[in-house]
Simulated scan of single mutants.
Amino acid sequence: MRLQNTGDRMVVLDTETTGLNPRTGDRVIEIGCVELINRRLTGNNFHRYINPERDSEEGALAVHGLTTAFLSDKPKFAEIFEELREYIRGAQVIIHNAPFDLGFLDAEYKLLGHGPFSSDISGVIDTLVQAKEMYPGKRNSLDALCDRYGISNAHRTLHGALLDSELLAEVYLAMTRGQNSFSIDHGGSHNDADSEGVTLELLPLAEITVRAASAEELAEHELVLNGLDKDAKGTCIWRQVPVEATENPAQN
């Protein structure tokens, strides 16, 4: 498997949904994207909550915590469609377990008489497929990969599309750092070669850019949490300290 040209624009994408199956009417409720150019986070992110016009299944709600009441005043997918298309147009899109997200996005496009989603982008990189090739027989969920690469996800008590995209971007950079190919020859050479025997130079380590949330972003986040508190008639799960952190601090 050949890595993409590092000069290409890449978009790391994740969605949250009302359930597991778009064929039975489940819808997208959140889209989060982060942009990578030359293997660097640019800060040009795309994040929208979406009114799915239906309730989330109980299992899905436990995963993302986005209530029907919270989403009721958010734009419908049709209202963010053109903005999303403009953002992802021509990009190489990175997704963990791509068939899931692509199935939902294709379904949303089809409802609007468009599609498929892949027609707007240059290609898809599925990090789950890559991880299975690199670590066969091991757990390769996003959480497992964060643990494997030492990427902190301690603040992730629930799934969120933007947060998961940011974590996946770090995982992707860690997975592909210094490699031009996943077909590594273990015969002792320090460089890799393609299928025609042409030597490929290893890339230098990329500098990791960490962007702290701005005061405006923190204030917006607080407003979202306040809305969830109101819907939950108490403290929403996003503000709750994980049980293991309070009862068993020594356990990993």
Rank of each mutant, 00 (worst) to 15 (best):
C33S: 07
A174D: 08
D143N: 08
R2A: 13
R40G: 08
E166F: 01
N5P: 11
S56E: 06
E244Y: 13
P204E: 05
D73W: 01
V124T: 14
G113R: 05
P136E: 01
L128A: 07
S189H: 11
L112E: 06
G188D: 05
E86R: 13
R148P: 04
S118D: 02
G7R: 13
L105N: 08
V210W: 04
E82K: 14
E247K: 15
D14R: 13
H155F: 08
L105Y: 07
N140G: 00
F104M: 08
A245H: 14
E216P: 03
S195H: 02
T176D: 14
M10A: 14
D143K: 10
L225S: 04
G7Q: 13
T42G: 08
T209N: 01
K138M: 12
P249A: 12
H155W: 08
A62K: 15
R177H: 12
E170Y: 02
I125N: 11
L3F: 05
S183Q: 12
G103L: 06
D8R: 15
L13V: 09
Y49E: 04
T68W: 00
S214R: 02
A98Y: 00
L228P: 09
R156M: 01
L20S: 05
V93G: 10
T68A: 05
A131P: 12
A131S: 15
L223G: 02
K132N: 15
I237N: 12
A169I: 05
T246A: 14
E216M: 03
H159W: 04
E16M: 00
A169P: 06
S119M: 04
T17C: 10
M134L: 15
L158M: 14
E133C: 07
R27N: 07
L225D: 02
P75R: 14
N38S: 09
S183D: 13
D8A: 09
A131D: 02
S72L: 03
G90W: 05
E35L: 00
A154Q: 13
L111V: 06
A144M: 04
L200D: 03
A215Y: 07
E35V: 02
G103P: 10
V210H: 15
D8L: 09
M10F: 13
S214I: 01
A107W: 00
P22T: 07
F46V: 08
R211G: 00
A144T: 06
V129E: 09
R27P: 11
R177I: 03
A91C: 01
L105S: 11
V129T: 14
F182H: 13
E30Y: 07
R211C: 00
T157L: 05
R54H: 03
I184S: 11
L112V: 07
G103F: 08
A154D: 10
T6L: 07
E79L: 00
A144Q: 03
L102K: 10
A215S: 12
L71Q: 10
V241C: 10
W238L: 03
S122V: 10
P116G: 11
L223I: 05
G19L: 06
G113P: 11
V34I: 13
R2H: 13
Y172F: 15
D8W: 03
E244H: 15
P204T: 04
I29C: 14
C146N: 07
M1E: 03
E222R: 15
